[in-house]
Protein backbone atom coordinates (compact mmCIF):
# COMPACT_ATOMS: atom_id res chain seq x y z
CA UNK A 1 0.00 0.00 0.00
CA UNK A 2 2.98 2.21 0.38
CA UNK A 3 2.69 3.36 -3.12
CA UNK A 4 -0.73 4.58 -2.63
CA UNK A 5 1.43 7.53 -2.22
CA UNK A 6 3.35 7.81 -5.26
CA UNK A 7 0.86 6.25 -7.18
CA UNK A 8 -2.10 6.86 -9.19
CA UNK A 9 0.03 9.34 -11.01
CA UNK A 10 -0.78 8.11 -14.42
CA UNK A 11 -3.60 5.73 -14.26
CA UNK A 12 -6.17 5.76 -11.62
CA UNK A 13 -8.16 8.90 -11.55
CA UNK A 14 -10.62 9.13 -8.74
CA UNK A 15 -13.19 6.64 -9.72
CA UNK A 16 -16.27 7.92 -11.38
CA UNK A 17 -16.76 4.62 -13.11
CA UNK A 18 -20.36 3.66 -13.80
CA UNK A 19 -22.24 6.73 -14.99
CA UNK A 20 -25.99 7.19 -14.48
CA UNK A 21 -26.76 7.10 -18.19
CA UNK A 22 -25.17 3.66 -18.55
CA UNK A 23 -27.44 2.09 -16.01
CA UNK A 24 -30.10 -0.25 -17.33
CA UNK A 25 -33.73 0.30 -16.40
CA UNK A 26 -34.20 -3.32 -15.42
CA UNK A 27 -32.64 -3.64 -11.95
CA UNK A 28 -32.14 -7.41 -12.27
CA UNK A 29 -30.25 -6.99 -15.54
CA UNK A 30 -28.27 -4.08 -14.11
CA UNK A 31 -27.30 -6.14 -11.07
CA UNK A 32 -26.03 -8.89 -13.40
CA UNK A 33 -24.11 -6.30 -15.41
CA UNK A 34 -22.47 -4.95 -12.26
CA UNK A 35 -21.52 -8.43 -11.09
CA UNK A 36 -19.98 -9.29 -14.46
CA UNK A 37 -18.16 -5.96 -14.68
CA UNK A 38 -16.62 -6.39 -11.24
CA UNK A 39 -14.80 -9.52 -12.39
CA UNK A 40 -13.52 -8.11 -15.68
CA UNK A 41 -10.19 -6.41 -15.64
CA UNK A 42 -9.75 -3.04 -17.25
CA UNK A 43 -6.76 -3.57 -19.53
CA UNK A 44 -5.75 0.04 -19.76
CA UNK A 45 -5.70 0.60 -16.05
CA UNK A 46 -4.20 -2.82 -15.41
CA UNK A 47 -5.40 -3.50 -11.93
CA UNK A 48 -8.93 -2.23 -11.70
CA UNK A 49 -12.13 -3.85 -12.79
CA UNK A 50 -14.03 -2.19 -15.59
CA UNK A 51 -16.69 -1.46 -12.98
CA UNK A 52 -14.26 0.70 -11.02
CA UNK A 53 -12.51 2.45 -13.85
CA UNK A 54 -13.36 5.60 -15.70
CA UNK A 55 -11.09 4.79 -18.62
CA UNK A 56 -12.79 5.02 -22.01
CA UNK A 57 -12.19 1.40 -22.82
CA UNK A 58 -13.71 0.35 -19.50
CA UNK A 59 -16.73 2.42 -20.26
CA UNK A 60 -17.04 0.92 -23.75
CA UNK A 61 -16.86 -2.54 -22.26
CA UNK A 62 -19.43 -1.75 -19.58
CA UNK A 63 -21.81 -0.55 -22.25
CA UNK A 64 -21.06 -3.62 -24.34
CA UNK A 65 -21.73 -5.94 -21.40
CA UNK A 66 -25.10 -4.28 -20.91
CA UNK A 67 -25.94 -4.48 -24.61
CA UNK A 68 -25.24 -8.18 -24.65
CA UNK A 69 -27.37 -8.73 -21.57
CA UNK A 70 -30.24 -6.77 -23.08
CA UNK A 71 -29.85 -8.85 -26.24
CA UNK A 72 -30.51 -11.89 -24.08
CA UNK A 73 -27.04 -13.35 -23.53
CA UNK A 74 -26.40 -15.36 -20.38
CA UNK A 75 -23.72 -14.14 -17.97
CA UNK A 76 -21.47 -16.91 -19.22
CA UNK A 77 -21.93 -15.83 -22.84
CA UNK A 78 -21.14 -12.21 -22.03
CA UNK A 79 -17.93 -13.18 -20.28
CA UNK A 80 -16.98 -15.48 -23.17
CA UNK A 81 -17.63 -12.62 -25.58
CA UNK A 82 -15.09 -10.43 -23.81
CA UNK A 83 -12.59 -13.26 -23.28
CA UNK A 84 -12.72 -14.09 -27.01
CA UNK A 85 -11.40 -10.59 -27.68
CA UNK A 86 -9.05 -9.96 -24.80
CA UNK A 87 -8.11 -13.40 -23.53
CA UNK A 88 -8.15 -14.93 -20.05
CA UNK A 89 -6.14 -11.95 -18.86
CA UNK A 90 -9.33 -9.95 -18.41
CA UNK A 91 -10.69 -12.40 -15.86
CA UNK A 92 -9.95 -11.16 -12.35
CA UNK A 93 -11.16 -14.55 -11.18
CA UNK A 94 -8.74 -16.77 -13.10
CA UNK A 95 -10.35 -19.90 -14.58
CA UNK A 96 -9.15 -23.30 -13.36
CA UNK A 97 -6.98 -24.53 -16.21
CA UNK A 98 -3.72 -26.48 -16.29
CA UNK A 99 -1.73 -23.26 -16.11
CA UNK A 100 -3.60 -22.09 -13.01
CA UNK A 101 -3.66 -25.44 -11.19
CA UNK A 102 -0.76 -24.42 -9.04
CA UNK A 103 -2.52 -21.15 -8.24
CA UNK A 104 -5.81 -22.73 -7.22
CA UNK A 105 -4.55 -25.91 -5.61
CA UNK A 106 -1.39 -24.34 -4.19
CA UNK A 107 -3.02 -23.11 -0.98
CA UNK A 108 -4.51 -26.55 -0.31
CA UNK A 109 -1.17 -28.23 -0.99
CA UNK A 110 0.61 -25.75 1.26
CA UNK A 111 -1.93 -26.32 4.04
CA UNK A 112 -1.63 -30.11 3.77
CA UNK A 113 2.17 -30.01 3.73
CA UNK A 114 2.32 -27.57 6.61
CA UNK A 115 -0.26 -29.47 8.64
CA UNK A 116 1.54 -32.79 8.16
CA UNK A 117 4.79 -31.09 9.12
CA UNK A 118 3.17 -29.84 12.31
CA UNK A 119 1.60 -33.23 13.00
CA UNK A 120 4.96 -34.93 12.56
CA UNK A 121 6.65 -32.43 14.85
CA UNK A 122 4.06 -32.69 17.59
CA UNK A 123 3.80 -36.46 17.20
CA UNK A 124 7.49 -36.88 17.87
CA UNK A 125 7.40 -34.60 20.86
CA UNK A 126 4.24 -35.70 22.56
CA UNK A 127 6.44 -37.79 24.87
CA UNK A 128 9.66 -36.71 26.54
CA UNK A 129 12.53 -37.25 24.15
CA UNK A 130 15.04 -37.85 26.91
CA UNK A 131 13.96 -41.49 27.24
CA UNK A 132 15.37 -42.33 23.85
CA UNK A 133 18.55 -40.38 24.48
CA UNK A 134 21.79 -42.16 23.79
CA UNK A 135 23.62 -43.41 26.85
CA UNK A 136 26.55 -41.33 27.99
CA UNK A 137 29.97 -42.24 26.77
CA UNK A 138 32.63 -43.15 29.30
CA UNK A 139 34.33 -39.83 28.73
CA UNK A 140 31.16 -37.83 29.34
CA UNK A 141 30.47 -39.76 32.51
CA UNK A 142 33.95 -38.99 33.75
CA UNK A 143 33.44 -35.29 33.08
CA UNK A 144 30.15 -35.20 34.93
CA UNK A 145 31.69 -36.94 37.88
CA UNK A 146 34.48 -34.39 37.89
CA UNK A 147 31.98 -31.51 37.87
CA UNK A 148 29.95 -33.05 40.64
CA UNK A 149 33.08 -33.57 42.70
CA UNK A 150 34.02 -29.91 42.26
CA UNK A 151 30.60 -28.87 43.41
CA UNK A 152 30.80 -30.93 46.55
CA UNK A 153 33.94 -29.20 47.65
CA UNK A 154 33.34 -26.44 50.16
Amino acid sequence: MRALLFALLFLALPAVAVEPEEILDDPALEARARAISKDLRCLVCQNQSIDDSNAELARDLRVLVRERLVAGDSDQQVVEFVVARYGDFVLLNPPVKPHTWLLWFGPVIILILAASGVALYVGRRARPIGIEAEPLTAEERARINAVLRDKDKP
Partner: peptide, 29 residues
Protein backbone atom coordinates in the same frame (compact mmCIF):
# COMPACT_ATOMS: atom_id res chain seq x y z
CA UNK B 1 -0.52 -20.74 5.06
CA UNK B 2 -2.52 -17.54 4.61
CA UNK B 3 0.70 -15.63 4.05
CA UNK B 4 1.92 -18.19 1.51
CA UNK B 5 -1.43 -18.02 -0.27
CA UNK B 6 -1.40 -14.25 -0.60
CA UNK B 7 2.20 -14.48 -1.75
CA UNK B 8 1.31 -17.10 -4.35
CA UNK B 9 -1.61 -15.08 -5.67
CA UNK B 10 0.37 -11.87 -5.79
CA UNK B 11 3.34 -13.31 -7.63
CA UNK B 12 1.58 -15.94 -9.72
CA UNK B 13 1.17 -13.73 -12.80
CA UNK B 14 4.91 -13.15 -12.70
CA UNK B 15 5.77 -16.85 -12.24
CA UNK B 16 3.46 -17.92 -15.00
CA UNK B 17 4.72 -15.41 -17.50
CA UNK B 18 8.34 -16.20 -16.76
CA UNK B 19 7.70 -19.90 -17.35
CA UNK B 20 5.12 -20.00 -20.10
CA UNK B 21 4.51 -16.56 -21.63
CA UNK B 22 0.89 -16.91 -20.52
CA UNK B 23 -0.73 -13.91 -18.90
CA UNK B 24 -3.18 -14.32 -16.10
CA UNK B 25 -4.87 -11.92 -13.72
CA UNK B 26 -5.32 -12.73 -10.08
CA UNK B 27 -7.87 -10.40 -8.59
CA UNK B 28 -10.00 -10.01 -5.48
CA UNK B 29 -12.21 -13.05 -6.23
Amino acid sequence: TACATVFLGTLYPLFLEALTDEKVSVGPP
